[in-house]
Design a protein around this nucleic acid. Structure first.
Lengths: 235, 235
DNA sequence: CGTATTTTTGAAGCGATTCAATGGACGTGG
DNA sequence: CCACGTCCATTGAATCGCTTCAAAAATACG
């Protein structure tokens, strides 16, 4: 277990604006953890240990229902935290954090993190703002799941992913994640089949380009039109 | 704007275990607000002002989509807080808090609340634990909306409401809220019609008793069986 | 007692799922 | 480098759960 250099922490939203002393203290309490592609930082149901901030790689948060159905909660890219809810509420991890590629994260023991927040109130307030913004995401997704049709939900999911992990590329924005149709289905509450059908349609219309675990948004505007249920723009 | 007596605050989870001095300071920063049945503490889209804890009455948190569809986010009973997310994340209120009966709440200005949390770290940690547990609720509801059928979702919604506002009564547990079929539909992501049909069926089976804005759970066990998709118990 | 709101019920239709089977991409080992 | 096995993606056809719309019944309220 090595410790991250305090300078590395500055890059992360959660620790931004902290003074050097605070960063050193935060870094001193951290541990570094490396995980292979396919392995998990933590698994749903095991007792809560750490809160993490991803430094390298990508991860996927999933939840499985008692009867084995899986839901993708969100994807994590470097700089984002995961396991916050668990480390604050205690109990067991409510979800699984799996590395999609070789990944590395800094972790803090629940108690250590609480101690740090007590010592650095600004850290506490940032954590709460982070939690609050995640709450909004969830509220929005809830509303979407409750009121919108699959097509719009998938369009929205793609746009969100593009915002989070999109990279500009010749002819569009590529979603820089190993994103299968299955993932997309579990993210938007539908089935692989429906996702496949819709993406095929969009590809034929030139709105997206697809490949195995690969999606490029060629006409973001048209995708927004679908997400917002606007009349499709004429070309 | 009167101020609540500090003794009154003790009853609330959020302020439990605070010492007398802290309670006095918290009470001093509070304002009391009374609202008529049907009126709102705040409306979705208006700039964030206060975080509230309900002291009397019932309230309902709703969100409307851009195209006018409404979703019920949750019901609030005395002792529960609302507007937390907004007061921490800032910006506009993401939802509307409407009183279902004459209601009263203690409120704290966003800045004041942050100040109190800085001064009383235990309050901050409780707030975070509260946020975290709300997060879990949302995650769960998300998963349900994504994977379960309407019947199970409604059964779950009823059980949750019974846990929150249930009162024992001859022949079952009554949900002590003015709960319309419409509310239940907007809470579980379906239509009034489907809710009405299912409740009629359950009533015929003796699982629930219904009335206008009134629901009594007569056989909680059977409702759990539906929620968990177990084989129905034989009688 | 009349009006407004809430609830129920029926019939028709569709969006999305389910299941089965095929097709294509990738990586690995010979 | 090709051949194989595995995983991922596609497509079609059948089905069903739920919604939609229309209309009537029940309940509460002034």
């Amino acid at each position: 277990m090595t410790r991250p250099a305090s300078e590395l922490l500055e890059k992360f939203d959660l620790f931004a604006d902290r003074d050097a002393g605070a960063l050193v203290a935060i870094a001193a309490a951290a541990l570094t953890r490396r995980v292979e592609a396919g392995d998990a930082f933590f698994v749903q149901g095991e007792p809560t240990a750490c809160f993490y901030v991803l430094s390298k790689g990508r991860a996927r948060l999933t939840q499985v229902t008692p009867d084995g159905q899986q839901v993708v909660v969100r994807f994590i890219t470097p700089g984002e935290g995961f396991g916050i809810v668990a480390s604050l509420a205690g109990g067991d991890y409510p979800l699984t954090a799996e590395a999609l590629e070789p990944a590395e994260a800094y972790g803090w023991d629940g108690e250590a993190f609480k101690g740090l927040m007590a010592a650095h109130p600004e850290l506490a307030s940032r954590s709460m703002a982070l939690l609050a913004s995640r709450m909004r995401e969830f509220q929005d997704r809830n509303r979407e799941l409750a009121t919108e049709r699959v097509e719009r939900r998938i369009a929205r999911a793609l746009l969100r992913l593009a915002g989070q992990s999109g990279v500009r590329e010749s002819g569009g924005v590529r979603i820089d994640l190993p994103l299968s149709r299955q993932d997309l289905a579990e993210l938007s509450g539908t089935t692989v089949f429906t996702v496949s059908r819709l993406l095929s349609g969009w590809e034929a219309a030139g709105i997206v380009g697809t490949g195995r675990k690969r999606i490029v948004i060629r006409r973001p505007h048209d995708l927004v039109a679908i997400a917002e249920d606007l009349p499709p723009a004429t070309h």
